[in-house]
């Protein structure tokens, strides 16, 4: 067996690859929130940042494909691991007590599925129209259109509610997933209690930021 397949077909190798994609996505969330935050303080700044992100070749043709690959990998590997883990216990217990394990740690696949459903909606909402605008219809660059598009999307209360639900699930997913990705990478030492606290604050603060921005635009426009 080659080095690559013996490493990444092993349960630990797969979990490590899962952890690396998770940590990349965790960092991406911070970037995304920072951009969204600009929309609260300045329409111009948000337009400028969005225009830069939407036209910069490094972002468009390097970071964007890497991001999409990380998202797809994280979901596909999540499903593969879930299927393998389910197969490891073909006969279920008649009575099961999950003990001290948290609900979310036992149900990451379900929070992940809600996040996946949200991502589909998010792509239909923003990414597909954007790709259509730029690369298919090749419409002229309008640098100040982004803020208006964002505000327009958050006029619909159904979308805002879906947005809030998805981010609550994302928060729960991160509450277990962020620190779990560090453990899967072999990081557990004397700093772990502090790091765990940080991951928990991050897991609540980042999704809360997205939710507050959505509610802000819903209320103010």
């Amino acid at each position: 067996m080659s080095w690559f397949s013996s490493t990444f077909s092993s349960s630990i190798g797969r979990k490590f690859a899962m952890a690396l994609s998770a940590l990349f996505l965790v960092f991406f969330l911070l970037m995304h929130l920072t951009t969204n935050m600009l929309s609260v303080f300045s329409a111009n700044a948000f337009n400028e940042a969005s225009h830069f992100m939407g036209t910069n070749p490094v972002v468009q043709f390097l970071l964007q494909p890497v991001l999409i690959a990380a998202v797809v990998f994280h979901f596909v590997m999540g499903f593969i691991l879930e299927a393998k883990n389910k197969a490891a216990r073909p006969v279920k217990y008649a009575k099961k007590d999950t003990g001290n394990a948290t609900w979310i740690s036992q149900n990451m696949i379900y929070s992940g599925l809600v996040i996946l459903a949200f991502l589909v909606l998010h792509f239909i909402d923003f990414w597909v129209p954007e790709m259509n605008y730029k690369y298919i219809e090749q419409l002229p660059a309008v640098t100040d259109r982004y803020y208006g598009e964002l505000v327009h999307k958050f006029q619909n209360p159904v979308r805002v509610v879906a947005y809030v639900i998805a981010f609550v699930l994302l928060s729960l997913h991160l509450l277990h997933g962020f620190q779990s990705s560090l453990q899967s990478s072999g990081i557990n030492n004397k700093f772990t209690p502090g790091i765990k606290k940080f991951t928990e604050i991050y897991a609540i603060a980042i999704p809360l930021g997205f939710v507050l921005i959505a509610i802000y635009h819903f209320i103010n426009h």
Partner: peptide
């Protein structure tokens, strides 16, 4: 040991702590 563990059909760790 990890290769044998996988070959036996045990699942992967999801760090639930159970």
């Amino acid at each position: 040991m990890v290769a044998q563990m996988d070959a036996e059909g045990f699942g992967a760790c999801t760090n639930t702590g159970a």
